Simulated scan of single mutants.
Amino acid sequence: MRVATALRLALVALLAAFLAAPDWFEPVFAPLTENGAPAIYRQASLLQLTIAHLGTVAVASLAATVVAVGLGIFVSRPAGADFLPLSRAIVNVGQTFPPVAVLALAVPAVGFGTAPTLIALFLYGLLPIFENTLAGLRQVPAAVLDSARGMGLTGRQRLVEVELPLALPVILAGVRYSVVVSIGTATIGSTVAARGLGEVIIAGLTSGNTAFVLQGGLVVGVTAVLIHDGLLAAERRAMAARASKA
């Protein structure tokens, strides 16, 4: 456990150092360049690109979470059960159409920039959160719900005070998967002029500069790992809280 924690802290420190002062790492990437090409991407600040990248993911993931959890709650109630097939069809749109296709369809409607990327990430992130919300709510023991009814809790009180807290670890697992996938998928947003780390990767691919590709890929990968671990820790805390209430 201590070794894993030390490794995470080392990753955080290394990522922070690279984003704050990438020129320090020029000797590491220089062997990957040819014909005097620059070893460090300098057309924009790597720190600012990372912030923009994560900002896009955060907005899309938050919107997807609100919509997917809301739909999951609605169709798990008796009044909304008949809408489950329709809801599944809606949240499956992002999985049916790849993000690149969504970008191609969104650009004529909303133009270039961050907007089409947000739409693609939002649609792509709905399914895992929706399905995990349903799974989490359905696994709440019937005996617990009967006990809550016996205590005189209303339907809304049962949802807020009993069902959602017990389902939270499963819902968070869906959010974690959605966010981590979105961090990688967001790189394609640079093909439609969205600010993000995809800009570094695409610049490397178009110029044949392996150093740029590696820089963008490493920042995306390390960031995804660190955020995955953070969300997993939140998930474990929610599981511990659920166990203490059982």
Results as ranks from 00 to 15, higher is better:
Met1Ser: 09
Val3Thr: 13
Val3Ile: 15
Val3Met: 12
Thr5Asp: 09
Ala13Glu: 00
Ala13Asn: 07
Ala13Tyr: 07
Leu14Val: 09
Ala16His: 09
Ala17Trp: 11
Phe18Leu: 07
Leu19Lys: 12
Pro22Glu: 05
Phe25Glu: 04
Phe25Ser: 04
Phe29Cys: 06
Gly36Lys: 03
Ala37Asn: 04
Pro38Arg: 06
Ile40Thr: 03
Tyr41Thr: 07
Gln43Tyr: 12
Gln43Arg: 13
Ala44Ile: 00
Ser45Leu: 08
Leu46Gln: 03
Leu49Val: 10
Ala52Tyr: 01
Leu54Lys: 03
Val57Met: 05
Ala63Tyr: 01
Ala64Trp: 04
Thr65Met: 10
Ala68His: 07
Gly70Leu: 14
Gly70Phe: 14
Gly70His: 13
Gly70Ile: 10
Ile73Asp: 12
Ile73Leu: 15
Val75Phe: 11
Arg77Glu: 12
Arg77Thr: 04
Gly80Phe: 05
Leu86Phe: 14
Leu86Glu: 03
Ser87Lys: 00
Arg88Val: 06
Ile90Lys: 00
Gly94Ala: 04
Thr96Ile: 12
Thr96Tyr: 10
Pro98Ala: 07
Pro99Ile: 00
Val100Ile: 15
Val102Arg: 00
Val102Pro: 02
Leu103Lys: 02
Ala106Gly: 04
Val107Gly: 09
Pro108Cys: 00
Val110Asp: 06
Phe112Cys: 05
Phe112Leu: 14
Phe112Val: 09
Thr114Cys: 05
Ala115Met: 03
Ile119Arg: 00
Leu123Lys: 00
Leu126Pro: 03
Phe130Met: 11
Glu131Trp: 06
Thr133Val: 13
Thr133His: 13
Ala135Pro: 00
Arg138Gln: 15
Val140Glu: 13
Ala142Lys: 09
Ala142Ile: 13
Ala143Glu: 15
Val144Ser: 10
Asp146Phe: 10
Ser147Glu: 15
Leu153Ala: 07
Thr154Arg: 15
Thr154Ile: 10
Gln157Trp: 02
Gln157Phe: 05
Arg158Asn: 10
Glu161Phe: 10
Ile171Tyr: 14
Ile171Asn: 12
Leu172Pro: 04
Leu172Gly: 09
Ala173Gln: 05
Val175Phe: 13
Val181Glu: 07
Ile183Thr: 14
Ile183Leu: 15
Gly184Val: 08
Ala186Lys: 08
Gly189Lys: 05
Gly189Asp: 12
Ser190Tyr: 09
Val192Lys: 04
Ala193Thr: 11
Gly198His: 08
Ile201Arg: 01
Ala203Asp: 06
Thr206Asn: 11
Gly208Ala: 14
Thr210Trp: 00
Gln215Lys: 10
Gly216Phe: 03
Ala224Asp: 12
Ala233Lys: 01
Arg236Thr: 13
Arg236Ile: 11
Ala238Asp: 04
Met239Thr: 12
Ala240Lys: 02
Ala241Gln: 12
Arg242Leu: 12
Arg242Thr: 13
Ser244Asn: 10
Ala246Lys: 03
Ala246Glu: 11
